[in-house]
Design a protein around this nucleic acid. Sequence first.
DNA 1: CGTAATTTTGAGTCGTCTCAACTATAGTGG
DNA 2: CCACTATAGTTGAGACGACTCAAAATTACG
Lengths: 251, 251
Amino acid sequence: MPDPSFFTDEPQLTPLLRKLRSITRLSARDEQAILRLPAHPRVFTAGQDLVSEGDRSTQCWLVLMGWVQRYKLLSGGRRQISAFHVAGDMADLPSLHLPVMDHSLGAVTYVMAASIPHEALRELLERHPDLNAPFWRDTLVDAAIFREWVANVGRRPAYQRLAHLFCELYLKQAAVGLAQDHRCPMPVTQVDLADATGLTSVHINRTLRDLRRDKLIDLRSKTLVIHDWTRLVEAAEFDPTYLQLDRTLAA
Amino acid sequence: MPDPSFFTDEPQLTPLLRKLRSITRLSARDEQAILRLPAHPRVFTAGQDLVSEGDRSTQCWLVLMGWVQRYKLLSGGRRQISAFHVAGDMADLPSLHLPVMDHSLGAVTYVMAASIPHEALRELLERHPDLNAPFWRDTLVDAAIFREWVANVGRRPAYQRLAHLFCELYLKQAAVGLAQDHRCPMPVTQVDLADATGLTSVHINRTLRDLRRDKLIDLRSKTLVIHDWTRLVEAAEFDPTYLQLDRTLAA
DNA sequence: CGTAATTTTGAGTCGTCTCAACTATAGTGG
DNA sequence: CCACTATAGTTGAGACGACTCAAAATTACG
């Protein structure tokens, strides 16, 4: 159910501003320039790819609503998710300088996204060189998140690993106003969680039960409720530095 | 044993050019500008940190010789390595836009590195806006490698995981002329390999034995010898797309 | 040449996986 | 609005890949 105003001519780029503001500072002039970017809205149903491995992009997708996942398919039906993206994320900003996709971007939920031509972005950056830094910084924050995922998947046991993922996804959403009061959307299946953490869905199920048993969280009807943020952070050994959020959000 | 010419006034930035050329195209003018960057050489002994978690950087380190690793320390003595860097790599280019380190950069071997002040880099990018793209692209390639590592650690069994790492490190070095004839430097301990793959050193030892038994590789005196590149690639299910090398290097 | 670091091997354990069935929830069409 | 069907979640039992602990063998280094 897309918001009717969504299909008006005016591009809805404010989520992008909110995102960029959460990790950097922008001048009013630069913000205006961003808002003038041409953006073509489109919807995707759950499971659809926005971009698939091997595609050559000439545009970037900005997520406006819903969740998008970044994933690789391996042989034998194995899959690894390397990122979740929410409203405001330029999910495939990398395609601006790496046009051939080495992975896919898929819609986790019903998704509204806006495509922005590479050409328009390049022109923006040319006219407003100051904007190189914020966007570049955005890709650097994403890279920092990938690094944290390497550590998560490589060195943390299942319980800690899931807890860590929840801490990250809560803060990431809170930073752009999509979460508060220790609850946030978590519109993924246990299979998705498994593919994001390098576990099996069976083990995710049992680990979720343990997290629930310990009164740390609840995950029901696609909503994560955090019962005890402090203990969740402890259990996860979560340090939000890597998210590079301007101000640490109060717990 | 530093090369004597290393300490002359002339900055030795050619490895950087070689690296950038392996993943992008540069104009002669831009190349000249890069060569004029001020670079202050320094050596590090194995085990020393170039930069530590929590540090605030005002300069970037360019690796000139030796290997550098990117790693995070976790509780209980656990460690996760998320990248290896070789000559030509701007190991902490991220610090240009994310000055607070969320991880450490350590010397794997005896290392020669050159520090380039952030200020000089910013000035370079201001005067040569075309250079934003190549450097940005470099951080995007690193991010692509992180993503591949997430998949490697998350979804591949030990044997495949190690094989994949070796394919990557061989190609990465070959791309900048540091490897050829299916042999390359691999100056890491089994503990390092364990921390890069999310395994234990004991299991690395046994997996190396298996790879050796299968006549795929040999790893002796810090040198990797690949006996059968084709079968190694097969075993690893290695697809070099993510490295974004200009030309695929012949097998 | 002695000492530390690294590699190798064995034996037992454990976290996570596999396979398989069953239950619950959500979406769809009559 | 309910029945039907597909999707998602839950549980049990057994297997296995990787881990732990510990010691011995080898190699590197000052």
